[in-house]
Design a binder for these strands. Structure first.
Lengths: 195, 195
DNA sequence: CACATTTCTTATCATACATCAACGCATTAT
DNA sequence: ATAATGCGTTGATGTATGATAAGAAATGTG
């Protein structure tokens, strides 16, 4: 149990062996069936999730009932609504398991405590924040400056494994276009390449 | 001087009086004329900037020589290329003074040292990161889900003062549209309202 | 297995926004 | 003053993407 998270803390976050059992004892593990919601709109997000196995997405539903995918998180990824978690506001997002998923749950208190126990954890947590900002800024950059085809090409380059596991219409939603448009783009790319 | 930064640390970041002089001693102050660059593409960003007076923008120039405005920072705002600063990579961005500007410069070392000296500073720094993420996610959300008019209305609501100080074409760039389109949107809004 | 549901594709038409070009009005430089 | 430059506006036209609808393919379910 909790083995992937243990390994992740050890190898990626470089948490010292002595601190590992202490930290691990503070988190819960939970299973979610495909389609289950880890977070619903209106709830205050109580946990961040570390995905041990499976695949999840963060998305919203707007006034016109359209879904907008904000993020995917597969194995070894983190997912949560930081705004809700950190600021204690009701979330406007859903988090859904796209496959049967096993996740580690931890709250802000855990992050605080773990940061005090382990400087390595603290550093890694800051790294995660910085990295998150980097990704978001990159995405904004693409949304502002690149057309749909470029954004799609960037996506498959950045997340090749997701391209296969995630339904196309969700990728379209992530890219900010309709499924039909993505379908056209893919068609064009295939025929272009075969020339 | 450094008075505005001093006040900011005291009032916003809640840094204790005893720590203030120590921290202030570690940062530099610098003036930039309108049009001057605080950071150029290709450079590794060495500082984060706290704007005491004036106005700045972070932007990039793409292959087709188009500018894309990523962020504005007026008085009491922070601006930097976090990716370059934190990860030590050459920046793809420019930071420009849009007005005569007075800024406080500080590097990663300062943040580290200040965090060790003052827990309040550490907390505030984390708050800034979380808040940055919140803003970026919000913007992505708008870019994905809202049309240009909605994004503009959101902008003027969020940054009413900027709307007056910043050239329209830069706002258009920030919104991801052309200056011509923004001009038309504004025209439409004016005539709608007067009905 | 058969049936229902979801996902993907394709086609047609509609629209938001981009492009290109011209002009007026400031501001700045000569 | 005059010229030059930058910014905002407007009009004509083009293009990428959206909307709608229908069918094909894939997937799930009794």
């Amino acid at each position: 149990m909790k083995q992937p998270f243990f390994n992740y803390l050890k190898d990626k976050a470089m948490v010292k062996a002595e601190h590992l059992p202490v930290l691990i004892a503070l988190v819960q593990e939970k299973e979610f069936k495909k389609g289950a919601l880890l977070l619903s709109e209106g709830q205050v997000c109580q946990h961040a999730f570390f995905i041990e196995k499976g695949l999840t997405r963060l998305y919203s539903i707007d006034e016109e009932n359209r879904e907008h995918v904000v993020q995917f998180a597969p194995e070894n990824g983190f997912i949560s609504d930081r705004e809700s978690l950190y600021f204690g506001k009701p979330s406007v997002f859903f988090i859904e398991a796209l496959e049967d998923t096993s996740a580690i749950l931890f709250n802000q208190d855990f992050i605080k405590t773990a940061s005090e126990i382990s400087p390595e954890f603290r550093n890694y947590n800051e790294y995660l924040l910085q990295n998150h900002i980097r990704q978001l800024q990159n995405r904004i950059h693409l949304l502002i400056g690149a057309d749909a085809k470029k954004r799609y090409l960037n996506f498959i380059q950045l997340y090749p494994s997701l391209t296969l596991r995630v339904p196309q219409w969700m990728i379209a939603s992530y890219l900010g276009i309709t499924p039909e448009s993505l379908s056209r783009i893919r068609k064009e790319l295939v025929t272009r390449k075969s020339k």
